[in-house]
């Protein structure tokens, strides 16, 4: 029976082959084994959204996925959003609009925002709020985040 496994996966374009305990979740794996600490852990039960990242092109909660389940997959984390997700405009708008304070929700918030924009959704504030309603932010009150997402969509449309 397997208690550890060797997994091969690509993170932000870089290939990794690692041995992992099968019980280790993907968030812990990326943070402690790979050393990409930009992915944050906020609740470890899938509710807060801080650990959200991209696995094979879609957002997932990395605290609710085992590292071993990610074997063979392609992962993008906050460290890769500027280049691998072409999100430099979104990042710029988060910055200029002050769409983060403590920065702890930011990795997950960016992931959900990128997904919303990539799906071709409109700059509709209510739809944006619904899409990010699984990402908890204690600091901003969300308005600045919605502003930044909508601005990015509008800028891309023009």
């Amino acid at each position: 029976m397997m208690k550890t496994a060797q997994i091969t996966l690509t993170i932000n374009g870089e290939k990794h082959i690692e041995d992992v305990p099968v019980r280790m979740n993907l968030a812990d794996f990326i943070r402690t084994k790979i050393g990409l600490t930009g992915t944050h852990v906020g609740c470890e039960h899938g509710v807060c959204g801080a650990c959200t990242l991209f696995l094979d092109g879609v957002t997932i909660r990395s605290c609710l996925t085992l590292a071993v389940q990610a074997d063979g997959s392609e992962i993008t984390t906050i460290e890769g959003y500027e280049t691998d997700k072409n999100a430099s405009d979104l990042i710029k708008n988060f910055h200029t609009r002050n769409a983060l304070q403590c920065g702890y929700c930011t990795p997950g918030m960016l992931a959900s925002s990128i997904e919303y924009i990539e799906q071709g959704n409109p700059a509709d504030r209510e739809l944006v709020k619904q899409h990010i309603s699984g990402n908890y932010c204690r600091c901003t009150g969300y308005q600045a985040i919605v502003d930044a997402i909508c601005t990015t969509i509008e800028e891309r449309q023009n």
Binding site: G49, T59, I60, R61, T65, S112, H131, N135
Partner: peptide, 12 residues
């Protein structure tokens, strides 16, 4: 489906 949790949960 849109009422079930949130996108990242629905993706899994």
């Amino acid at each position: 489906i849109p009422h079930i949790a949130h996108p990242a949960i629905r993706n899994r």
